[in-house]
Design a protein around this nucleic acid. Structure first.
Lengths: 219, 219
DNA sequence: TAGATTGTTAATCGATTAACAATC
DNA sequence: TAGATTGTTAATCGATTAACAATC
């Protein structure tokens, strides 16, 4: 498998499948069909079957998918059958919120270190972690096999932090800063800037411009 | 304009254009070409021209786009030529982080109220806002013409909060909870769940499974 | 004028969905 | 067996990119 190139859209749906499968598993549901998954997740059943079939024949005709087995397989596909360590840079409000979220993640992904360039932040505690100074970034990343970087610094610092992460050997970055990062093509970067999300929502609001009719009455 | 249906992908790029145009404007750059925009934003120039052309002829052949004029036009398209009020539900770490971000948003979008169901949160302050109890949600939304809801409650409460927001007249929702919300089709919902983003990143990590060669040597 | 750059059409590429044989 | 559901091919749909005439 993985011989065909898998599109990003497919990969992004895998964690969504995984999340609902975990829920089914907790409820001790043994089997699920693409139809049921589709209903719950607002996706087309054919799309779900096709997504999964890229990676193997996980289902059984006439039956559906075994929940536990599919969870195992998707974890393998996502490399979550091993623990993946992440580092967070920027111990502001958002950084602290994400660090705390750590313990909500049921999967094998963990923020194992937090950094900040501001001396007043260094040494403060976020749960079990102590905020470290930027000088220790590279060493910590290498010593702890940290592979993912999460950027929650202000926009003007983001590229600089990204460069440091990359030169320290990080493989992928989740960027919360509202800026487009430049990086070599082998580094995977996902933009997670919610200001973009929020502003684009405004497009879908009813205009209001049309609602006032010539005579001043509201329709 | 707006006669053709505009795809979500196009709309999502508009705030990204806007952000960079604002930066150019601050630097007093008067004019920009699709080529330069494309370079900065990692987008194809033809795509940028096409995106903008859906809404009007904003550029000038041989010259490019007038920065101030294009800012004005994109704001109009996104309904950001008027103030858009938003409400945030869930005053946990993430909610507080977002509320504080408020003042980073240069555009006409403002979180004007924060709610939480936990009595211990109610009455606490986040910047200039006081956390209110859920009982006041509907009234506050209507009294303040709040049109967008931001959900930062735990997953098991999210659907319930969405229902309340919708029945209070909200038009669009930004959902940070890791769950698929069900809503009538005229309500616009964007998922902003970063756990999905983070887990999907793991797919792109080098497997490591291949890196240990038969003789035990690492390649 | 010559060079630059738009707006737009046509070509390409990719993703989603429908349909159905295989089979549990 | 009859009903259900997969895996997969073909059809459809939509989005991106290339190319270029128009024109500043």
């Amino acid at each position: 498998m993985k011989s065909e190139k898998i599109s990003e859209a497919v990969v992004r749906r895998l964690p969504i499948y995984l999340r609902y499968l975990n829920e089914l598993n907790k409820r001790e549901v043994a089997t699920v069909s693409s139809h049921e998954l589709g209903q719950k997740l607002d996706l087309n059943p054919a799309q779900i079957r096709k997504d999964l079939a890229y990676f193997g024949d996980f289902g059984r005709k006439g039956i559906g998918y075994d929940v536990s087995y599919l969870i195992e397989k998707i974890r393998q596909i996502l490399n979550l059958d091993q623990q993946i360590n992440a580092v967070l840079v920027g111990a502001g409000n958002l950084g602290m919120a994400l660090s705390n979220y750590n313990f909500y993640l049921k999967e094998n992904m963990k923020i194992v270190a937090v950094f900040d360039s501001k001396p007043v932040k260094v040494g403060t505690h976020i749960n079990t972690l102590t905020v470290q100074p930027m000088e220790e970034l590279s060493e910590t990343i290498q010593a702890n096999k940290i592979r993912i970087g999460i950027i929650t610094v202000p926009d003007f610092e983001a590229q600089n932090v990204a460069d440091m992460l990359i030169s320290s050997g990080i493989e992928a970055i989740l960027n919360f800063a509202p800026t487009i990062l430049k990086a070599p093509s082998h580094i995977r970067i996902h933009a997670a800037d919610f200001t973009t999300d929020l502003l684009s929502l405004a497009y879908y609001l009813e205009d209001g411009k049309d609602e006032i009719i010539d005579d001043g009455q509201v329709k």
